[in-house]
Write a protein that binds this DNA or RNA. Sequence first.
DNA 1: CTAAAACCTGACACTGACGTCAGAGGCAAG
DNA 2: CTTGCCTCTGACGTCAGTGTCAGGTTTTAG
Lengths: 125, 125
Amino acid sequence: MRIGELAARAGVSVRSLRYYEEQGLLTSTRSTSGQRHYTDRDVERVGFIQRMYAAGLSSRTILEVMPCVDAPSAETSDAAMERMVQERDRLTEHIAELVRTRDSLDRLIAVNRAHRKTLHKAPAA
Amino acid sequence: MRIGELAARAGVSVRSLRYYEEQGLLTSTRSTSGQRHYTDRDVERVGFIQRMYAAGLSSRTILEVMPCVDAPSAETSDAAMERMVQERDRLTEHIAELVRTRDSLDRLIAVNRAHRKTLHKAPAA
DNA sequence: CTAAAACCTGACACTGACGTCAGAGGCAAG
DNA sequence: CTTGCCTCTGACGTCAGTGTCAGGTTTTAG
């Protein structure tokens, strides 16, 4: 498929796909006229990339863990494995922090609700 | 206390504190010479701001929920409460997404470990 | 054949939370 | 007083992912 279809299927912009290629995260075969062509597998790959971005990894870091995705059946480089475990742990810690933050938001909401109930929806002063 | 001490206590840069003030998130009393002065309570306030940033809120959004922090005992504006609940829900969804992403990383790690074990740490080809 | 739509490269714009530098003034210690 | 550190304002730099525009080629539909 060409770049427009991949973009539509993966739910990203054409611009992003070119950027991913520029960053070495995505490769394409080129037709004689220079147009990029992709396979169905690339849809998943772009999805993976997007999730990594959403998890806070940079292009460079995603690139470092890619060997684990590309060659899970081969001798994945130690560096890539190490990086992936490291990012997994970082993500775990980040999730824990977000949960704590959400809890504090919950408490704040509860406190405000309690006060509003107390005031019985009194009008502004 | 002056800005340097607040920065040290809250673990942020002086630059950030000035930026927070510029965004309306933090206020200071000024000495006659124009220097900013803060209270102990501002240390917590900066901590709160930092956690909100870490949770993905923008300056503008933090500003919108601030009434709930500033006046939890008064008639907190409906808009602020609504915004806070909305952000709490967004955060919940984001956490769920991150957990899914971490699970997929876990699976990827497991797959790679299994293959490495199978290969019995065979040297690179 | 021709017009529209998709694609190409290259480059500049943008956003947002800062870093950093310049030039000037404030404040406690020796 | 002066040395040295802290602070002030203002402004420009940065980073990273993406938007967007220009100017040109390719593919597709009629």
